[in-house]
Computed example of a mutant assay.
Amino acid sequence: MANRTGTYFAFDGLGQADPTKSDFRYYATVQSWTANKSMEFNFVNSHDKAAAVRDTSKLETLKTSIRVRLAASNRMVIILSPATRKTGSLLSYEIEKAVDRYDLPLIVAYTGRDYVLSPLSLSSRWPAVLTARINNETAKAIHIPFRQTAILKAIKSYSVNGQQPSGPQRIYTREVQEKWGYL
């Protein structure tokens, strides 16, 4: 297997050709945190480790690139918004492969949330494949708000070859989220 050092970011493109109209905008936010030299937000991005493909590429080309990137990944960050689809996006394929084939710990980041204390209360955002893997407990996941400190802490804490969430619905404690100023 490839050198597994990367962080794979997954989100729903929402069937949009314009990335500003899809959940890509949240991934772009993460990229801006990384580019901002005054912020301490560094990680190895799995998307930088494989050849770029466009959403107009053939489906099998996209899937091949996804598998290459997942094989090089140490964890997956799944960005979920209220618009995330239950089925019909490549996000479902990414989650399925991340859990079933590559055994990646999941960092499930919810946009528009200041804190996360009950993942189940946010289950309406879960794609069907994530719901299935949470319900059958094959997913090892921590659920967090889409906020810089929480994302960076989770990236630094969880990896395929290190510490993993101990179940499918882990959270940072109320006390930790209060310390971060989220509550």
Rank of each mutant, 00 (worst) to 15 (best):
K86G: 00
R69E: 14
L59Y: 12
L152D: 00
Q31T: 03
R4V: 07
L80D: 00
I155G: 04
T5A: 08
G6D: 06
A71E: 12
F146N: 03
S46T: 01
T131D: 03
Q16K: 15
L120Q: 10
V68H: 06
D114P: 06
T64C: 11
P105C: 11
S157Y: 06
D23T: 11
E137W: 03
T7C: 15
Q148I: 09
A35E: 15
K97H: 08
E137Q: 13
R170Q: 08
G15H: 13
Q163T: 12
S123W: 02
V160Q: 12
G181W: 07
R67M: 03
A2V: 08
S159I: 11
I107E: 01
E94R: 02
E94Y: 02
R4Q: 15
E178W: 09
G181D: 07
V77D: 04
L106E: 05
N135G: 05
D48C: 05
S32L: 08
M39G: 03
I79Y: 01
L183W: 09
Y110S: 02
N45F: 01
G6S: 13
R113K: 14
V116M: 05
Y8S: 05
L130D: 02
R125L: 00
L120P: 00
R147I: 00
T20I: 00
R67Y: 01
S121R: 10
I144N: 00
R4E: 15
L130R: 03
I107T: 07
A109S: 09
Y27T: 07
T20S: 12
V68R: 10
A28R: 05
T131A: 10
A71P: 04
M39I: 15
Q163M: 07
S124M: 04
S73N: 12
F11I: 01
T87A: 14
R170V: 00
Q177H: 08
H143C: 05
T131I: 01
L91R: 06
P168G: 13
P165E: 02
S73W: 04
P127H: 03
Q163K: 14
K97L: 09
G88K: 13
R174G: 01
I155R: 10
A139N: 02
T29S: 11
A28C: 09
S46N: 06
P119S: 05
R25Y: 03
S124T: 04
D48Q: 11
H143W: 10
Y8M: 11
Y182K: 07
A132N: 13
T84D: 07
V44Y: 02
I134P: 00
N45G: 04
A52T: 11
N161F: 15
F24W: 15
P168W: 04
R133N: 10
Y110Q: 05
E175P: 01
Y172T: 05
R101S: 12
I107Y: 03
N42W: 02
L90Y: 14
P127Y: 03
Q31E: 14
T64P: 03
N3K: 12
A2F: 06
Q177T: 09
V68K: 10
A28W: 02
N45C: 10
T29E: 14
I155W: 08
Y172V: 07
Y182P: 07
N161I: 14
Q169D: 13
F41H: 06
M1P: 08
